[in-house]
Amino acid sequence: MLEFAGFLPILLVIGMAAIQLGLIGYGINQAGSGARAAARVASQDGDGTAAGQAAVSGWLKPDVTSDKGADLTTATVHVHVPGVIPLFGGYDVTRHATMPTDD
């Protein structure tokens, strides 16, 4: 019983680190999806910012920007993944996507 009580904090930290890594992976996936959606819609003269924000979970608070050029449209999505482990802050994730501009 005493050994388990001494080892329990280590198990909790390992479990919280696994949850944190899962959240970071989810944030990376969501940012990539939002960037692709924003670039695709912006390349077709649509509102890429709205499309990118709609493609990302709202609790990640996405910041979407798109830049339409003559040949290529690039979108960037920044999301903030909250920290689960105390004493560590959240993590910022950025993803970019580029699509050919439709004329």
Score class of each variant (00 low, 15 high):
Val81Trp: 14
Ile28Arg: 01
Asp63Thr: 07
Ile85Arg: 06
Val41Ile: 11
Val77Arg: 00
Gly32Asn: 14
Ala38Ile: 12
Asp63Met: 10
Ala50Lys: 02
Pro86Ile: 03
Ala42Gln: 11
Ala35Cys: 05
Val77Pro: 00
Ala55Tyr: 00
Lys61Gln: 15
Ile14Val: 13
Phe88Cys: 10
Leu8Gln: 03
Val56Tyr: 14
Arg95Val: 01
Leu12Trp: 11
Val56Glu: 10
Pro86Gln: 07
Lys61His: 15
Thr73His: 01
Gly27Ile: 01
Ala50Ser: 11
His96Ile: 09
Ala75Asn: 04
Ile19Gly: 12
Leu60Tyr: 15
Val84Ser: 05
Leu11Tyr: 07
Ala51Arg: 01
Tyr91Asp: 14
Gln44Met: 12
Gly69Ala: 15
Gly22Lys: 15
Ser57Met: 08
Lys61Pro: 03
Gln44Glu: 11
Tyr91Leu: 14
Phe88Gln: 13
Pro62His: 09
Thr73Asn: 03
Asp47Val: 06
Ile14Lys: 05
Ala38Thr: 12
Asp71Gly: 00
Gly69Asn: 11
Arg95Tyr: 14
Tyr26Ser: 00
Ala51Cys: 04
Tyr91Gly: 08
Ala50Leu: 14
Ala54Tyr: 13
Asp47Asn: 12
Leu21Phe: 14
Val13Ala: 05
Asp63Tyr: 08
Gly83Lys: 04
Tyr26Val: 06
Ala75Ser: 09
Gly83Arg: 05
Asp102Tyr: 09
Leu11Asp: 04
Val64Phe: 02
Ala55Ile: 00
His96Gln: 13
Leu60Gln: 13
Gly52Cys: 10
Ala75Leu: 08
Lys68Gln: 07
Asp67Met: 08
Val64Cys: 03
Leu87Tyr: 04
Pro100Val: 01
Gly32Pro: 08
Pro100Asp: 06
Asn29Pro: 08
Phe88Trp: 10
Ala17Pro: 01
Ala50Glu: 13
Lys68Cys: 11
Val41Met: 09
Thr94Phe: 15
Asp45Ile: 07
Thr73Phe: 05
Val84Tyr: 05
Tyr91Ile: 12
Ala31Tyr: 12
Ser57Asn: 01
Val79Thr: 01
Ala54Gln: 13
Val84Asp: 09
